[in-house]
Write a protein that binds this DNA or RNA. Sequence first.
DNA 1: CGATTTCTAAACCATATGGTCTAGATTACG
DNA 2: CGTAATCTAGACCATATGGTTTAGAAATCG
Lengths: 236, 236
Amino acid sequence: MRRGLEFKKKARIIVVDDNYEHLSGIKELIEIESDFDVVATATSASVAISLIKKYRPEIVLMDINMPEKDGLTAIAEIEKLDLGVRTIALTGYDDPDLIFRAMKIGAKGYILKTMASAQLIYAIDEVANGKIYLPATLSSRFFEYFQKSFKEEAQTVSDEDNLLNYLTQREEEVLDLLTQGITYKGVAQKLFISETTVKTHVNNIFQKLQVNDRTQAVLYALNNGFLNRRKVKIAI
Amino acid sequence: MRRGLEFKKKARIIVVDDNYEHLSGIKELIEIESDFDVVATATSASVAISLIKKYRPEIVLMDINMPEKDGLTAIAEIEKLDLGVRTIALTGYDDPDLIFRAMKIGAKGYILKTMASAQLIYAIDEVANGKIYLPATLSSRFFEYFQKSFKEEAQTVSDEDNLLNYLTQREEEVLDLLTQGITYKGVAQKLFISETTVKTHVNNIFQKLQVNDRTQAVLYALNNGFLNRRKVKIAI
DNA sequence: CGATTTCTAAACCATATGGTCTAGATTACG
DNA sequence: CGTAATCTAGACCATATGGTTTAGAAATCG
């Protein structure tokens, strides 16, 4: 598979799988069917991490379903090292939650063990070239899960009977300061009003939000999208 | 393109684009090259929504770059109607933030206007069959953006000098109850200890978190991933 | 123009919260 | 076994917070 005079470096790979049979199978597959270089293998996440520090590979193939320290935390740790190592998650399950979590913590690809060997090689190739690879079926599953979580969030947040809607503008300003952990005295200074006025506003806020104290008001505000009102932030 | 005796219903489509040229172009394209049925078109989001309510199509092709009411809010509204209508976003820009927001609010597909007509038909077909369709390039862009946002979040949250790490187990339990808006008396009852003990714990918490009151402690906890410790919740 | 809402502010009081110190019982650690 | 950390709990005091009522000024609305 070598391609003449290309300068492209052979991607160096570390394979991690607690099952030794699988491990050597994958290693052989890669060495025979592709141009990549398996520089090391590991049967546990902790060993894998020291090997990664030592060899600095471009790619890590990580089995997610391991006992002891699980693969997801391992991936998270690898990402935290920030060595530019790109990790591909490998597993038998297409559980959307698993896919979501893997991608969330920084996996650059996600492949099922049942998939054809050609697809594995293709995925490694894509990821080695800086792309992120998810097979179409898994991608669909991911997005369904992704949208479902946001839908639930949107429902709980932007209800039209959100009690925050009943607050006046001044009350919103006061509540905004409260959600920053500022005392009544501080609020009074910031808004150039007396402390008793602040107390009046606060009491009205309590009644409207049906809570009994400052902490509960702040919690209500945070749980019901109060911050999203003023800031146009579309953050996750 | 009709396929003999299949029972599959022709998907009914509404196309929305403020540019009339584009609109009729897309409409013709769909009618000539595919089996789908364009039941209506609209040049504004608000008109589109009433048409959707009237025709109940399976698919909506929505141009995102419209003046007045923009396409994203339109998609959000359509999703909110919960009519089972599946929306595909259509735009000239592959801005990752745009893609991310579109998918977040529930778009079932995202296509660039520059893409080949065959790809448009393919996308509609996929979405009509209940799948979610993102072309590979856009998918890559989406995931990069997705991971970047989580990476930033992870950095601010899971620092090793997170003051929450200095809390004892009992202090964590107390703080947990405080983050639910419970009073000292309530905490005392829940933990079967005296109120003065609660106060002792709380004072220790304040010192460790370097804050002055309950609200600030709760805010610190929420902003620094306190909830993610006990609950394995991977919520967004 | 009259009514309503909003923002302002005070008085008064009860209680919750916060700050500091001391101290016994238990457990963990070297 | 001695020491440190943790959990418990009391005393004492200062102040912040919460509940209620009243009320004037300004803005908004029909």
